[in-house]
Amino acid sequence: MSGGALSDAPVELQRPEALEILHRAFPDQPIVLTIGGTIREMVAVCGRRPNHLPMLDSMGLATPIGLGLAVGLADEPAVERVIVADGDGSLLMGFSVLTTIGLLRPRKLIVVLFDNGVYLATGGQRTAAASTDFVVAARACGLRSALIQGAAALEAGLQTARTEDGPWLLRVPVGTVAPPTPFFNADPVVLRSDFDRWLAAKRA
């Protein structure tokens, strides 16, 4: 497989559409959502869902939390995959987690990196994503990885990650078109409790 460097082609896939594809691919699996627009747009496209764990303010922790879930649920037959919807800024904040994923190799973990190249929620300041080959970095750490461009490729990539063991990192370039969405400020204890109950029912 080739590396994951970005092409100069314009990005046509926007994050809300990408999130909807992710939701449709994994409607019944745990999904950790990173902060900001990712949560608001996921709620906008599919509503509040108890299998989603929105991370309200812990930038950089979405993938570590997903890693812990994937390790802890490794022997749980009711859970096929643990998905993280992360962003480039959030992943870069705790990039070392790739090394820990490579060390632990949780086969159920899928990190879907929605890469818009900027900190969109705070005005669009650029991240280091444009100069970072996430796919090569992930592979160097021991993950399986691919560059996923466009809606059809995302559907196919998620299907592959569902059927073939990971850990996976899928780099999905997305645009910066952010539709207006209401602020999401739910009580974190309720979010955790909803997720707990959903997971307990799934495991029962």
Partner: peptide, 18 residues
């Protein structure tokens, strides 16, 4: 090993939630 404490907090949280 975890490389940094905050990463450990995230992983530990996921394990507890599991």
């Amino acid at each position: 090993p975890v490389p940094r404490e905050e990463e450990g907090i995230g992983i530990l949280s996921g394990l507890v939630l599991a």
